[in-house]
């Protein structure tokens, strides 16, 4: 049994396997299939200051080796999370992180301020990369100035671990990563979904009510691995890699590209127990190759 422990800033994870926001609900949805305490952590659904109804149906389209979604940050708001959901999940022995979204900088800060009462939430992931909302979201994440401004404001309000989730829908993701690192982010996670589109040719209509949506699944993995590799070379903070990870082999690709931890997203929809299998597969790989810890293979490319 190799040592799978990793640190993201001050945050200790028992293993590098996290779940991607928006693909794992609040953890509870998966408790019949896995022991949640086996995970390195899970990141709950994107949370905003006020409740959001999200976009109209249809919000999803299956695509080659992946899917498009346009959920649009449907959630019941941070107050509901704190009052109703947090008490049910707070005692799970894993790191629970909240993905924070906002339409304005003030929104992001307000959500962080409110989350401070949750003493088991040791980290937040700031979402500046959602492609499915009109305001905020990706608008902040596509310029260095916007990304830096959100990060600086949140950093003032939140002294626990701060992860910033980056959009791949940019010319240079390394520039954005460097900008958020300079403003005090403890880590960056990448990639969020790629902006995509699909058309129902028979009906001559877009597949999604919003026309465009975010592409995820193994179709995006080579792009994600490349971006993680580039960002790992450009920043000194730990990088969390995600994008189409379906098994342990895929996860190891990200780690060899330099990622400290990984997130499993869309794969949870196909196999609700995939996260635990990935942990076992990473461990099996390390044992088979006589590696004592992940640091022996991290960033070797």
């Amino acid at each position: 049994m190799a040592n799978l422990e990793v640190n993201i800033g001050n945050l200790q994870l028992k293993n590098p396997v996290l779940t991607a926001s928006g693909t794992f609900g609040y953890g509870e949805e998966f408790k019949d299939f896995i022991s949640l305490d086996r995970l390195g952590g899970f990141i709950v659904k994107g949370t905003t200051l006020n409740p959001r109804e999200g976009n109209d149906y249809p919000r999803m389209a299956e695509t080659p080796a992946g899917m498009l979604n346009a959920v649009g940050l449907q959630n019941k708001g941070v107050d509901y999370f704190i009052t109703h959901i947090y008490p049910r999940i707070k005692d799970i022995d894993t790191q629970i992180m909240v993905n924070v979204s906002g339409a304005s900088i003030a929104d992001y800060v307000a959500v962080c301020e409110k989350l401070k009462v949750c003493d088991k939430i040791n980290a937040i992931e700031v979402n500046i990369s959602c492609p499915n909302v009109k305001q905020g979201g990706m608008a902040f994440g596509t310029t260095c100035a916007g990304a830096a401004e959100v990060t600086a404001a949140v950093r003032q309000a939140w002294d626990r671990t701060l992860i910033v989730k980056l959009s791949p829908n940019v010319t240079s993701i390394t520039d954005i990563a460097k900008a958020v690192e300079a403003e005090g982010a403890d880590s960056v996670s990448l990639i969020n979904t790629l902006l995509g589109m699909a058309i129902d040719v028979e009906r001559r209509r877009p597949m999604l009510s919003t026309i465009t949506g975010g592409l995820s699944g193994p179709a995006v993995r080579p792009i994600a691995v490349r971006m993680v590799w580039q960002v790992c070379k450009a920043v000194n903070i730990p990088v969390i890699g995600l994008g189409g990870i379906m098994n342990g082999r895929d996860a190891l690709e990200f780690i060899m590209a330099g990622a400290t931890a990984i997130q499993v997203g869309t794969a949870n929809f196909i196999d609700p127990a995939v996260t635990v299998k990935i942990i076992d597969e990473i461990n099996g790989y390390l044992d088979r190759n006589n590696f004592k810890s992940l640091s022996e293979i991290r960033g070797i490319i």
Binding site: G25, F30, Y57, V71, F269
Partner: peptide, 11 residues
């Protein structure tokens, strides 16, 4: 997508 209430796609 998921069938478990996690992805919020089938609303």
């Amino acid at each position: 997508a998921c069938g478990l209430g996690a992805c919020l796609c089938c609303v």
